[in-house]
Design a protein around this nucleic acid. Sequence first.
DNA 1: AACAATTCCGAGTTAAACAGTTTGATTTAA
DNA 2: TTAAATCAAACTGTTTAACTCGGAATTGTT
Lengths: 156, 156
Amino acid sequence: MRLSTRGHYGLKAMFDLAQHYGSEPIPLKTVAERQNISDNYLEQLIAILRKAGLVKSVRGAQGGYILARDPGSITVGDIIRAMEGPIAPVECVSEVEPTECDQAGSCITRTVWARVRDRLAEVMDSISLADMLRDAENLSEHKAQEYKQNAPEGGS
Amino acid sequence: MRLSTRGHYGLKAMFDLAQHYGSEPIPLKTVAERQNISDNYLEQLIAILRKAGLVKSVRGAQGGYILARDPGSITVGDIIRAMEGPIAPVECVSEVEPTECDQAGSCITRTVWARVRDRLAEVMDSISLADMLRDAENLSEHKAQEYKQNAPEGGS
DNA sequence: AACAATTCCGAGTTAAACAGTTTGATTTAA
DNA sequence: TTAAATCAAACTGTTTAACTCGGAATTGTT
């Protein structure tokens, strides 16, 4: 039940773009450096996101990438489906074009995987990039708070 | 987000054994035939289940495999963890021994994957083999019912 | 005792996927 | 004109999946 780096890096890149949504296009190299990903490789990955309509590109000098829509309307599910294909723990319960096996009607393991698939889709579709931005803000506030509590006098 | 055949076949085999729980040991070949799995391959897989303590083996003629515990106390999660390792959409949120990356503290994608992992574990741990047996019974009743309704006069 | 049914074990094989790298063409602001 | 960038496609090395195979060890049956 592992994601490949495609989905992993894809989400990282999209989150990076979300953090800079509204300003000039971000060059791929910048994203790659910030997120610690090989820029050669990320180039391939972002092409997938572009073809899926999740990011827009601006070519030429001062070019780069921007989110195609606002962060509130892009979910983790959107990104993962683009990068890894339809959600499906096993082929026979794929979100699109499941190729049924012979005993599909009576297969109980199949119904188990359908439930797993639904939960997976549910959680991924419920988290948008905007949610992640909000979480990031809370997290950093929390950290600052912790810091204050742990070192209120300002140690050397 | 695909399962390998290990987890897929593993659950099938375990469900097959559950359906015959309480009687003599079932030879591997029988399970393989019923579940339509290469018996050479299943041999490897069931070794994993045995080492994980989920099935017991009886060697020699008339030997075979039986569930190590009753079907109510074995969950899909138990089986998948045995077959595929700890549940973890990405390595850094593995259920056991996550190897953290440098920015673990501030990584938001990480918290996303932790949520996905928890949902995944939740649904898998909530389904036991006994639940599946019950579902199978309902399903077959339902089918018989449907059959009655669709062909009450007994077509040719 | 011999035999056949079975588990057990380790090694070998094939094909695909993953995770990139490399090369070079094209676009465009400065 | 140049440098910064995207775009595209081919190439490569490594790992993993999904088996296959051969044979040894165990044990009920005859």
